[in-house]
Structures are given as C-alpha cells and as structure tokens.
C-alpha cells in the first residue's frame, strides 16, 4: 500500500517538474525570435544610420549613400492625417459610448468598432482605394492617412471608453450638483480627469499604425521623391522597407534595414515611454 503511493507520489512530482521545465522552455522559445529580430535590425541597420539617412533622398541605383528623408516626412504626414481622423472620431465615439450608454446608437457603435478592430489592414486599403483613390483619380497622402485613421479609430474608441469608465461617478455628481450642465461636466471635468489615459490610448494607436504598410500599398502608394502635396502619392517608412527589401540591390537592402531599425526604435520608444509616463500617475 505505502509502496504504491510512494511510487505514485514520486511520479507525480516528476511530472510536475517536467511540466514546469516545458513551460519555461516554451516561454524561452517565444522570446527568442524577438531577440533575433532586434539583433538583426541593430547589426544590419545601425552602420547605415548617419546624417544623410535622415536628410537625403535615396541615391540612384548603383551609387552609395543616400537616405530616406522623403519617407520619414511622408510617414509623419500620414500619421498626422490619421491622428486627426482617429482622435476626432475615436474620442468622440468613446465619449458617446461611455457617457451616454442609454443612447440607442451606442450598442451598434460599440459593436462596429469592435468588429473593425479585426478587419485586416489590407482590406481597409482596398476600401479606401475604392472610395477615395478612385474618386480623386490618383494615389495620395490623404488616402493613405484616411486608411491609417480608419485603423486607429476602434483602438481610440476603446481606450477612451475604458478610461472614462474609470472616472468615479462621484466626480460627475459633484459637477452636476454645482448646477453645471451635463456637457460642461463631461467636457471640462470628466474629460480632463481622463486625459492621460486617452493620450496613452491615442499614442499606442499611433505606434500601431505607424508601422502599417498593407493599407498604404494602393492608397499612399509610395514615391521615390519628395511628395508634392497632400493630394499626391507619398513615400512612407513601411513602404520603403517593403519595396527596398524585395528589390535586388544590396544598397537598397541597407536602406531597408536602417529604416526598419528607425521605425522599430520609434515604435518601441513610444510604447515604452507612454507606459512609463502615464502609468506612474
């Protein structure tokens, strides 16, 4: 009797240890690609990052040097347009959803914004092509910015909604008990109390769309030179990375690696800083 149970206990203990080991190993396997990618970016990209990288256009094929200044500016422009759309529609709907839950439009808005999160970015690219590019008759920074903005919206809606829910009801009551109209309470008392959280959400959404290439392929399209306006095609860092890394020229591969490094660094720093700055409060 005791012999069996002792043996059984031993087996159980071994199984327990084996599972613990497997789980630790599995976690390690998950993290290895992260370090491989980061290491690759640093080792292949850092040597190409110099002043020219940020200030010049790409050198013609066969020549050394050059940079991706046009794509950096293009990305900023695209993200700027996207932010305007994402913040206005996202924060607005977020306020509606959180502060007026009884409004009949809230349930469909919440559902649609949840559904849109899962729509592949490439599909958004197709839709904006069909609606905006066709109407304008050409690829443009505006179309690219709209595509990125549409992708941002659901993230901003959700962040705004969640943060506003965290503002205690007592704060709203205090404002209303002062005889302030509801819109003033919402806009000048509740929203300021939530502004840090909303900013975090917006910045994380920006970081997310800044790296998107798929929705830009047939909206912003890309451009070898400086964009001549918001209604013209523009380059962007993710597009440069795509087209240069599938091209056969080592010099372009070099620029693609450096662009990736810069892009990833920007995204990681934004993510990290937003968390550090806003979580502390």
């Amino acid at each position: 009797m005791t012999g069996v149970s002792a043996r059984n206990r031993g087996r159980r203990r071994v199984a327990d240890a084996a599972v613990a080991l497997l789980i630790a190993l599995g976690t390690l396997v998950v993290l290895v690609p992260l370090f491989l990618v980061l290491w690759y970016l640093i080792s292949s990209g850092i040597s190409s990052i110099d002043w020219a990288f940020f200030t010049q256009l790409p050198a013609p094929v066969g020549r050394e040097g050059g940079g991706v200044a046009h794509a950096i500016v293009g990305s900023l422009q695209l993200v700027g347009i996207a932010s305007v759309i994402g913040i206005i529609l996202g924060v607005g709907s977020g306020i509606l959803v959180a502060e007026y839950p009884r409004n009949p439009i809230v349930a469909p808005v919440r559902l649609m914004s949840d559904v849109l999160v899962g729509v592949p970015a490439i599909v958004t690219g197709l839709v904006v092509y069909g609606a905006v590019v066709v109407a304008m008759g050409r690829f443009s920074a505006l179309a690219g910015g709209i595509a990125l903005g549409l992708i941002m919206i659901p993230y901003v809606v959700r962040a705004t909604d969640e943060v506003l829910q965290l503002v205690p009801q007592s704060v709203r009551e205090a404002g209303l008990a002062l005889g302030l109209a509801r819109w003033r309470v919402t806009l000048f008392i509740v929203l300021p109390a939530a502004v840090n959280g909303i900013a975090t959400g917006v910045l994380l959404a920006v970081a997310r769309v800044a790296g998107e290439a798929a929705p830009l392929l047939f909206t912003a399209f890309g451009n070898q030179f400086w964009s001549r306006g918001i209604d013209q095609p523009t380059a962007a860092l993710p597009l440069v990375i795509y087209s240069y890394s599938i091209a056969p020229y080592p010099e372009w591969h070099r620029l693609a690696s450096a662009s990736s490094l810069v892009l990833v660094a920007l995204i990681l720093v934004t993510t990290l800083l937003t968390r550090l700055v806003f979580r502390k409060r």
Partner: peptide, 17 residues
C-alpha cells in the same frame, strides 16, 4: 441644471475634482 445651481449637494465621500 438651474435647480442644482440653487440647491447644492455635498456627498458622503469627499469628491474634489
């Protein structure tokens, strides 16, 4: 809103903005 301007309220837990 007019009613609440003239009839104020103080709550159980202090709730400064």
């Amino acid at each position: 809103v007019e009613v609440r301007r003239r009839i104020g309220m103080v709550f159980q837990k202090p709730n400064p903005f």
